[in-house]
Amino acid sequence: MATEAQSAEGSGNIHVDARTPAGSGTGEVRRRDFLNVAAVSFAGVGAAAAVAPLLVQMAPPADVLALAQTEIDISKIQPGQAVKTVWRKQPVFIRNLLPAEIQAANATPAGELRDPQSLAERTKPGKANWLITLGVCTHLGCVPLGAGEGENKGPFGGYFCPCHGSAYDTAGRIRSGPAPTNLVVPEYEFASDTVVRIG
């Protein structure tokens, strides 16, 4: 019975012993420290790893990335016309330049511009009349006017951002106003003579 166990070995009083336990040399301290440090490190690494999914979920999901490529039929855009289309949910301006507009763009010395670029650098070889830019003002992200029929094209005949008065020329280059750089030319290629693949 329990009482026997108690009287045999358990007849003791309680004694709080505050001394360092015998046999606790430096070696044991190290081993103890090692275990504690290892356990706490594991917990730390685990907690850090658990944060990873909480952060990566913020990145664009697969369905958004899948729309990163858009194909557009440009066969119906007449010279002098522009269309607004959408790529990655952003407006894209596709403009079929008139020879006069090309001439005006080429006549401007690129070196004097805020963001020096020639029209040739901003179009594909042999397709100098196709100016494809994001319709996003490089100042603070408004959509400039000038792509739609009858919209204000600004003092340089290209695009004009009504938010803060940035004016772009016929090559989509910044000419006046606060915007720091030219309208961005996205990556694109001509899938055929009439189809452009953006992205």
Binding site: Q57, P61, D63, V64
Partner: peptide, 27 residues
């Protein structure tokens, strides 16, 4: 951050989390 509380979108938004959102199935 991904769930839509709409009767038309709720079910699909959960499946969107499961399929397309990064680590969504895990969460």
């Amino acid at each position: 951050m991904w769930y839509y509380s709409s009767v038309d979108g709720a079910f699909n938004s959960v499946e969107h989390i499961m399929r397309d959102v990064n680590a969504g199935w895990l969460l």
